[in-house]
Design a protein around this nucleic acid. Structure first.
Length: 565
RNA sequence: UGGGGCGUAGCCAAGUGGUAAGGCAACGGGUUUUGAUCCCGUGAUUCGCAGGUUCGAUCCCUGCCGCCCCAGCCA
């Protein structure tokens, strides 16, 4: 049990406190939770918070967690999403073993519970139209009024309900309602609908059913059937808790789970509601659910986020009941933290500027053997070829350097990382006046690792041999939205107005160290001085690799320079 | 102006009667052949506001203010 948290994590949250108490007091022998997504979309980082809570606490307290699909609405749900969701949960590092369930597994039991309710006079078949039901429900400030069918004999309701099941009626003809209180200040308690007729094929039960239970009726009972002890959900279900409890109390439930609500995740510069995510996909603002700019688990995975970074993020933000808007830097920093420790280093020149080292022999090539990781010699070394012509980063050279700039400039010296110190002798321009090439001289005494290297040079830049490199495409991503809370200053709340139209920058002339050819595909690399990059699993071809930038390195200089302006 | 929640530093988040943990960000310094990493240091006389109870209140009481959710045969 996680008694004491590690020092850099928030203290144990209120839900874990409740669980711990319930276990210590003997109220429960062991913990049972569940992660209950509806298969009508892909999982996003907000779901990761729930996965981490449900599966994570089960793990910590040596309990179990069910992987349950809440598939009670055949109109909206698709089998395709089930697979994606399972893949995502697995990727997050959790396993459900034999505990993969579907609410639809319980349709028969649920039906029996419904009959029980009818027989006890706690539910009735409603024969008004949806419109009439809506009209008589009342408003936030006015009570609703009783349905004329509310007091029909339970035998009649039972017959009708059985006929509903048998397919005697059309969609919308009747509905099953709980008999609670039409004057309740809580609208959820005003005789909520429990079952509706839907003559459609269900992705799992096929044509077996034409009546389907609604969420409120299904969820608590599914929890009870599975022996869930703590049913954790988001805040918008707080108002439903009285109904959740009512249903469990009125029926002979196998056990009484406790529903506890926590606040959902919001991240600055992003949207996380399923509705909005679908909009982005369907209207083509992104290439799909797994677009690396999407904060879906599949998008993050494709972008190069390790699951451990997402788990760290979930731990770091904590669990509470207050509205929260997490800064993007928290997520990014989690990725940096994990990736810095694990990523092999490579040099890659994104925007190449050719450099000719005039005093280096034309036909000579020498190899340097730097470590793959500066602090982990056990990761080994790589072979980096050096030659007379190399590429450096265009942005590492300034004709007219600003103060405190310690990269390359005319007449200045800089160290080529792992190689030599060079001096810029001459700048060559193209016909448009743009810098196209640099002529430099190197100092053989400054060879990396040599005893004579002595000289300290402040500026260190990365480079790639022009004779020996792999040409790759690199995709630089930025946040998908330009405002911290998309749609917040629009009266209609239209988040599409705040789309960042520069969220992707594709560079196709990037020069990468040949070492890449010896490395595995599934690794995230650090391109030194730039950031972390992951080979795109979808768009990469054997001879045309594509790399996604997972996250930049922290860039103190960029910040400094921006402040100077 | 019905009901349910929430309000502690820029962003998260503990604490719930004894005098404000921690993380991220920010800032300052050190190390460094990544302006990265790493290390060290700096922040709330104050807990939405106003009263009250108390020797003492972020924590209890009263009133007020602000924000979020609910009127699907969605989940």
């Amino acid at each position: 049990m996680n008694e004491s948290n590690s020092p850099d994590l928030p203290a144990i949250d209120f839900i874990r406190s409740i669980i711990r108490e319930d276990l210590e007091s003997g109220k429960h022998q062991s913990l049972v939770t569940r992660f209950p997504p509806e298969p009508n979309g892909h999982l996003h980082i907000g779901h990761a918070k729930s996965i981490q809570l449900n599966f994570g606490t089960a793990e910590e307290f040596k309990g179990i967690c069910f992987m349950r699909f809440d598939d009670t609405n055949p109109l909206k749900e698709e089998e395709e999403y089930v697979e994606g969701i399972l893949e995502d949960v697995k990727w997050m590092g959790y396993e459900w073993k034999e505990r993969l369930t579907y609410a639809s597994d319980y349709f028969e039991k649920l039906y029996e519970f419904a009959e029980e309710l009818i027989k006890k006079g706690k539910a009735y078949v409603e024969s008004q139209s949806a419109e009439e039901i809506r009209r008589t429900r009342g408003t936030l400030t006015e009570p609703g009024i009783n349905s004329p069918y509310r007091d029909r004999r339970f035998e009649e309701s039972l017959t009708l309900f059985r006929q509903m099941r048998a397919g005697k009626f059309d969609d919308g003809d009747h509905v099953l309602r709980a008999k609670i209180d039409m004057t309740s200040p809580n609208i959820n308690m005003r005789d909520p609908v429990l079952y509706r007729i839907r003559k459609v094929i269900h992705q799992r039960t096929g044509k077996k059913w034409c009546i389907y239970p609604l969420y409120d009726f299904t969820h608590g009972l599914s929890d009870a059937i599975e022996g869930v002890t703590h049913s954790l959900c988001t805040l918008e279900f707080e108002d439903h808790r009285p109904l959740y409890e009512w249903i469990l109390a009125e029926v002979t439930a196998p056990c009484i789970p406790r529903q506890i609500e926590f606040s959902r995740l919001n991240l600055h510069y992003s949207v996380l509601s399923k509705r909005k995510l679908i909009k982005l996909v369907e209207d083509g603002y992104v290439s799909g659910w797994d677009d690396p700019r999407m904060l879906t688990l599949s998008g993050l995975r494709r972008r190069g986020y390790p699951p451990s970074a997402i788990r760290l993020f979930c731990e770091r933000i904590g669990i509470s009941k207050s509205e929260n808007n997490i800064e993007m830097s928290v997520l990014e920093n989690c990725a940096r933290e994990i990736l810095d420790k694990s990523s092999p280093r490579l040099m890659c020149v994104l925007k190449p500027l050719k450099v000719v080292i005039t005093n280096y022999p034309e036909d000579k090539t020498e190899n340097f053997h730097p470590a793959k990781h500066p602090k982990k010699p056990e990761m080994g070394t790589r072979k980096v070829p050096f030659s007379r012509e190399i590429y450096i980063e265009y942005e590492d050279f300034r004709e007219d350097p600003p103060p405190n700039y310690f990269r390359f400039a005319p007449g200045k010296e800089v160290r080529l990382r792992y190689a030599y110190v060079i001096r810029c002798d001459k700048v060559i321009y193209d016909s448009t006046g743009r810098v196209s090439e640099l002529h430099c001289t190197y100092d053989p005494k400054t060879r990396s690792g040599a005893k004579t290297e002595g000289r300290k040079v402040k500026g260190i830049i990365h480079w790639v041999s022009a004779k020996n490199f792999i040409q790759v495409e690199v995709r630089l991503y930025d946040r998908l939205f330009a405002k911290p809370i998309p749609g917040s200053d629009d009266p209609e709340g239209n988040f599409l107005n705040d789309i960042n139209h520069n969220s992707i920058d594709i560079l196709s002339e990037c020069k990468l160290e040949p070492e890449i050819m010896t490395s595995a595909n599934k690794e995230v690399f650090q391109f030194e001085r730039i950031g972390y990059f992951f080979k795109d699993p979808k768009d990469s071809l054997e001879d045309a690799m594509v790399f996604n930038r997972t996250v930049t390195l922290r860039d103190t200089w960029a910040k400094l320079e921006q402040e100077q302006h």
